[in-house]
Nucleic acid binder design. Structure first.
Lengths: 215, 215
DNA sequence: CTGTTTTGTAATCATTCAATTACAACATTC
DNA sequence: GAATGTTGTAATTGAATGATTACAAAACAG
């Protein structure tokens, strides 16, 4: 027993450097925004998940909108950085060079959106086209990825379209939680299998791990 | 002058049969939910767009959630009915039979999601996987489309994946309003062109028409 | 014409929630 | 060991909003 006197009462919130606390809040916010959407999420829910008080969340980021923008920016950064790293990796030349690169990028993308916070923050941004600030970030982010595939990866137009389209279908099937009904409807698994193909084990592994963590 | 005594005051809201009023409210709700999202939309905004009072909206549908579910159900109905009709149409057999059918279905889909209310209601549903009611409708709807493509259209797995993936990319690019920045960033148009190809004029026509209507 | 149903609103309530204020405890510096 | 800065919360506030209530006017039935 090293601080509270006896009962396991909620410990009086450790003092933690602001920079670190900031990261905790962003992690919490990613989860909460992902689950409830921008408008549906409350600063209080974020605070509870982060284990601190609601006013602290607000003071750290000024407004709820700023907090969301920061979450979104982080997600985009991780996506762009991940892609750029893979593109920069040395690769042997050959007929299937592009296919192989696309497969690697696809794998990295699935890895990323296994994090539901990231997946749903991105999708939240997509449907916020009407919001001047969020919408602009979404458009800019999408175009940055496009340019990366075109200029750095050297993909031809059809490969770009195919890659982006597959990504958006991944997004959707994971967002609607299709794996949740695998045992109610075998078509659900069939659709997932036909969509993710080799990557399916990757997805299902993560889903199973999440379920285990929840329990 | 046929009803108000003199000034052009807001006319005292015509009496209209409930069934018809219901349709007006649903149309208004589709727009508002599409713009602001489920949580972001208010029953008052819907009421204003529909030209009636807020309590009437609530009384007609019981709750805001019911209203959204009805909007979503309508969107899914239109989508399913549209696809089924095209699949049922007689078509000449040949090597490119499937490609032609896919192109027709794709065109119908683009037609449908030009209605931003429908597009964004669907996307709202996609990111509501956590919500038991909305999430279930989204999963069921997606699987219905899948089965239709597999059983009624006779698409092989890869064609299904490609078709659905393209659709999800259409969704995203329209949702983020990529055409809005055509003159700021030429890559925006390039990406739209590489995604929609032949269908682009269709999309842009609608976008231009909307802009004209706004002005 | 009288009574009933349908279509509608004004007023208001109860909640929720982002944001503010005021304050306390801990840490650091000089 | 005071003074200053940092990390945190409790309490509150003001606005927004879904829902309810109570009422009014039009339409209609007999």
């Amino acid at each position: 027993m090293n601080e509270t006197s006896g009962t396991a009462a909620a410990q009086p919130t450790e003092r933690i450097p602001a920079a670190e606390r900031r990261e905790q809040i962003l992690a919490a916010a990613s989860v909460v925004f992902g689950e409830r959407g921008y408008s549906g999420a409350t600063t209080d829910q974020v605070a509870k998940v982060a284990g601190i008080s609601q006013p602290y969340v607000v003071r750290m980021f000024g407004t709820k909108e700023n907090l969301f923008l920061e979450v979104l920016a982080r997600a985009l950064e991780r996506l762009v950085a991940g892609f750029r790293q893979i593109i920069a990796e040395p690769r042997e030349h050959g007929d299937d060079e592009m296919e192989l690169l696309a497969a690697r990028l696809g794998g990295a993308y699935v890895d990323l959106i296994e994090d539901r916070g990231i997946l749903l923050s991105l999708m939240q941004a997509f449907i916020s086209g009407h919001n001047p600030v969020v919408g602009a970030k979404a458009r800019a982010g999408f175009l940055e990825i496009y340019r990366m595939l075109r200029d750095e990866a050297g993909f031809p137009p059809d490969a770009i379209r195919g890659f982006l389209a597959d990504g958006m279908l991944f997004n959707t099937l994971l967002a609607i939680r299709l794996p949740d009904i695998f045992d109610e409807d075998p078509d659900a698994e069939e659709l997932m299998r036909c969509t993710f193909r080799g990557k399916l084990d990757l997805v299902l592994g993560a889903t199973a791990a999440e379920a285990a963590a929840d329990a």
